[in-house]
Design a protein around this nucleic acid. Structure first.
Lengths: 175, 175
DNA sequence: CATTAAGTTCATTTTTCCTTGAACCTTGGT
DNA sequence: ACCAAGGTTCAAGGAAAAATGAACTTAATG
């Protein structure tokens, strides 16, 4: 009920329209998923607004619809692009960059893994080695339970690392 | 820096001592992973301290070592237990509850999925239906692009849902 | 029962993270 | 070369989350 402007007034400028119910629902949906992985709500807002728009949108239009500041939208677009969750669309004869969602779930999930998870995993060997050294020092007196725990860490890293190809394969079946 | 009351020194050591380098390193490691999934740092601290202890620890001991308040540790223990990341150990003749880590990665990962992710997924059908209705109302005039997007959502939910058994199987190989 | 240790809860404070807004780049057009 | 539109960056302010601390509940023990 009480919808404002239907979808778009494409060629035209200042869209300070109120968000539609549809957009609100989508924002809720995406925000809940985003929270699990620690994304700020603004990301969900931007993604939802693009999701609800059949046409690619320029930053200015998103600002108007989302009720966020230029800065927030600029940062959000950058990160969403880095994740592969949105794609820039270059329109000839227009200086602005337009954006469309990436609606291929596989690509979004893979982007998240590649950007957020794997970099952390890569740190593990160094960290575990350091932990092992600390442990080894104080361990000379015979605290072997600790060493067993550190060995656990190594095992975790190995198993997780070995699983990533399978995991990518699993989400590769999405689309 | 005021230190809490010496309290009873039961059978042994680790009390209100300063955290060791080992513990600091472990906290960093766990905190980084925890951040990805939105856990507060205190969870990592508690888990790390238990990880570094060959013996199960009671709350009071954890408080002393972590430098956190009673309240924070109480809450943290509860949530970690809900996730299956730690286990209570009942010691006969001691009123306190002791805790040990669950070092089986599979169980921790499964706990996270079951507690944090799947409940969210279960909401999707309702939400999508609601979105479909909103969309259908305004859609009568022929905005079929939106309907296609909503259909996308359904597809996502279906694929993710169908993948969870495989995912559980994948992490089932861990240990 | 009365006592007291163990643990929980929750209003308040503290900390962390997000957003804002304005200054600052960059690039196309004239 | 200059202007202006499009976009980025970052210090400062504000909002949300987490930690604190004290009052409260629970349950062993004499």
């Amino acid at each position: 009920m009480l919808r404002s402007s239907p979808a778009l007034a494409p060629t035209d400028s200042h869209e300070s329209a109120r968000r539609s119910d549809l957009e609100e629902e989508l924002i809720n949906l995406f925000a809940r998923m985003g929270r699990i992985v620690g994304f700020p709500r603004s990301f969900a807002e931007i993604y939802a607004i693009l999701f609800a728009s059949p046409e690619p949108m320029a930053m200015e239009q998103i600002i108007g619809r989302a009720g966020l500041s230029q800065g927030a939208v600029s940062q959000g677009l950058r990160q969403l692009r880095a994740l592969g969750a949105i794609q820039p669309v270059y329109v000839p004869g227009d200086r602005r960059t337009f954006f469309n969602i990436e609606d291929n779930l596989r690509k979004v999930a893979a982007g998240f893994l590649k950007e957020q998870v794997l970099p952390q995993l890569e740190d593990w060997p160094d960290r575990i080695e350091r932990i092992g050294r600390i442990c080894g020092d104080s361990d000379s007196k015979g605290e072997s339970a600790l060493s067993a725990r550190v060995e656990k860490l190594r095992g975790w890293h190995q198993r997780i690392s070995r699983s990533t190809p399978e995991l990518l394969q699993l989400i590769g079946k999405w689309s």
